[in-house]
Amino acid sequence: MDTDDLIARLATEAPPPPLHVAALSGRIVIATLLPAALFLGVLGTRADLAQAWANPVVPLKTLLPLVVCGLALGALARLVRPEAQARGLLRALAVPVLVAAGLWGWAFVTRPPVVRFAEVGMFSLSECVGLIILLAILPAAVALRVLRRGASVRPMLSGALAGLAASAGAATGYSLFCTQDNPLFFVTWYGAAIGVVTITAALVGRHLLRW
């Protein structure tokens, strides 16, 4: 087709509604909160939540994924525009990751070898990893879907951030239910669940978010 004809044809089409990034992010947040709230509504938070939080390590289990979720959402929302960059937010993601790694190292050093991985059993493991992945599916799918309206020039990174925001959000909710307070357990297995969802979403995003 001749380029002038193409232009003439395109010019007859009605303009699309403008992109509202806040509304778009809002939908991702709602999709993250919904399954987590449903889960906690049905099964409840852990019974000893108030006492458990007296130990300063335990609130970190909730706080770290919450921070990751917030940073990932922020970066995601920025990268919706083709000209935008999110270097600051992406670098800031290193902070919760380093804190988690430090927590893991500290727990490893201070615990006697016998009790280090005492809680790791097939059941507790599949419960933790499985539930976080399950809770992350809806928000990850919604995030990938609404991002298609945007114009990220880095589809794989945007996909990864969608998975990271969804799974870190899911882990935040799940942490209020989970009774495993050993950082060797929760850093490892929350991290594994978040990693699985993030990598999957990155691979999906690479194709789905191209335009």
Partner: peptide
């Protein structure tokens, strides 16, 4: 010219992502 048209189509599809 094909590539030029692909670029124009992309601008067309993503024209709502520009902040005025």
């Amino acid at each position: 010219e094909d590539i030029v048209q692909e670029v124009l189509l992309a601008l067309h599809r993503k024209r709502h992502t520009w902040r005025e």
